[in-house]
């Protein structure tokens, strides 16, 4: 199989590392070659962060380049729009509807663009937008947005739910497993 590409984008501290770990485990368990590329260090401090997950028969580059992503999974609207150029023409965006003002907006040097999801759709981009923050809160913690998003992403994969659950169990500490299973189900069934 030709290499498939999933980008996870968001704001440093939102939990994209755990989501990428889950995907890495899942895809490796399906027998694919997998590479996952993460961001550490300064960019993590509230900056725009991106994680690349690639899988296929043989994966070389650890990063995803412009025009290559099959999926962009986004924790935040502006970040989905920021990384749009990385999406394949037929690619799919799965995004939380959450909006977080970046510092240039906070200090009034820039404004947060309005109706980003509608604008992306108008440009012909496939966007699946979901209020993941509310669903995470419903599951028991606002920190579970990452798993709600994974639940939503699972829609687009022809993989048994048990495989996702096994991957979830391998990356989440036991005491948070129930909460995360609920978050996953809320995302998957939304």
């Amino acid at each position: 199989m030709e290499t498939k590409n999933i980008m996870i984008v968001g704001v440093g501290g939102q939990g994209s590392l755990l989501a990428s770990k889950l995907l890495g485990q899942l895809l490796l368990s399906q027998g694919w070659d997998v590479k996952v590329s993460e961001v550490h260090g300064m960019s993590q401090r509230g900056g725009s962060v991106v994680t690349y997950v690639r899988y296929g028969d043989k994966v070389y580059s650890p990063v995803i380049d412009k025009g290559e992503a099959d999926f962009i999974v986004s924790f935040e609207q502006l970040e989905a729009a920021r990384w749009l150029s990385y999406l394949k023409p037929e690619g799919q965006i799965v995004t939380s509807t959450q909006q977080m003002d970046p510092m240039p907006v906070v200090i009034g040097a820039a404004s947060y663009p309005e109706n980003l999801i509608e604008k992306m759709r108008a440009a012909g981009v496939k966007v699946d937008a979901l209020d993941c923050l509310s669903l995470a809160r419903e599951a028991g913690s606002v920190k579970a947005v990452n798993i709600v998003l994974m639940g939503r992403l699972s829609h687009y994969f022809d993989l048994p739910e048990e495989a996702w659950m096994a991957a979830l169990e391998s990356v989440v500490p036991p005491k948070f497993l129930e909460l995360n299973k609920k978050a996953f189900a809320l995302g998957r069934n939304a």
């Binding site: 725009s48 380049d65 025009g67 992306m120």
Partner: peptide
């Protein structure tokens, strides 16, 4: 050959790292 790239006609403000 280069890949096809999509873009949005929209200025996306930067998100530099900040103190937490």
């Amino acid at each position: 050959a280069p890949k096809a790239i999509r873009s949005l006609d929209e200025t996306v403000p930067g998100r530099p790292p900040v103190m937490c």
